[in-house]
């Protein structure tokens, strides 16, 4: 127990950490947005009366949820290059993350959609709305509102899981820590710093998602503040 902390050399590498954090954000943000949209479409597909489509969406979700993310990242990275597609590691990582978060979003959104009372769908149908309009006006927003806490957790998990892409040499936060520690011989300090950085990113992300929820779910905002009219 005579370890003496020395953060000086690690902290001196802050511009590298900043760059790494920026790359982590560049991976997480588009992966979350694209993955959520794809996952929502997948949930609609799963609920479809078209058997093969519903089965296909279900199979996709099961495959992704029952294999490790690291393997998925390798599969996309080496798979694409084996097929002759020369893509940068960043692109391969983004594709793998989208595939992953879409599957989890699909499961979560499906639960939200299934929780909408059948009577509301019938009422919408009786008013003459098409199936697409029913989804857009009656199902989507309340479904998302119901499962928003679960979605938030999943998106934060995804941001943390981007660390895995360091394995295919994407220079995000974790890869930065690895590089800095090999240059400074201060691994403990480097990973403490990177843990703090992830923690800050997580808190920032939760705050952002909370504000987004407040903006989108107007009813919750109005009723929450007790403004009864």
């Amino acid at each position: 127990m005579d370890y003496t902390f020395d953060f000086a050399s690690v902290v001196a590498a802050w511009p590298q950490f900043l760059e790494g954090a920026w790359l982590t954000i560049q991976l997480s943000f588009p992966a979350t947005v694209i993955g959520f949209v794809m996952g929502t479409l997948c949930a609609i597909g799963r609920r479809s009366a078209v058997r093969w489509l519903s089965k296909l969406c279900g199979a996709y979700v099961e495959v992704v949820r029952n294999t490790p993310l690291l393997v998925q990242v390798f599969l996309v990275f080496f798979g694409l290059s084996s097929l002759g597609w020369k893509v940068p590691a960043f692109t391969a990582a983004l594709v793998a993350l989208v595939i992953n978060v879409a599957a989890y979003s699909c499961e979560i959104m499906r639960a939200g959609m299934d929780a909408i009372h059948k009577g509301q769908l019938e009422a919408a149908e009786c008013l003459g709305l098409t199936r697409r309009q029913v989804y857009w006006h009656v199902i989507l927003r309340p479904a998302m509102e119901k499962v928003y806490p679960a979605l938030t957790s999943q998106f934060v998990l995804l941001m943390l899981a981007t660390s895995i892409t360091s394995q295919i040499s994407v220079e995000e936060l974790t890869a930065t820590a690895a590089r800095v520690q090999s240059e400074t011989f201060r691994p403990f300090e480097a990973y403490i710093l990177v843990a703090v950085a992830y923690l800050a990113l997580s808190l920032l992300m939760r705050a952002g998602l909370w504000l987004f929820g407040l903006a989108v779910f107007t009813r919750r905002r109005r009723l929450g503040t007790g403004v009864a009219r």
Binding site: Q120, L129, H137, F217
Partner: peptide, 30 residues
């Protein structure tokens, strides 16, 4: 369904919309 209106025992209002939005939805969308 534009010619037939139906009201059920369970009111089936859309909970995320105000009363006004509940009513204007179909005239606008349909």
């Amino acid at each position: 369904r534009q010619d037939v209106g139906i009201v059920f025992q369970s009111y089936n209002l859309f909970p995320h919309l105000t009363v006004e939005q509940n009513i204007t939805l179909a005239p606008r969308a349909v």
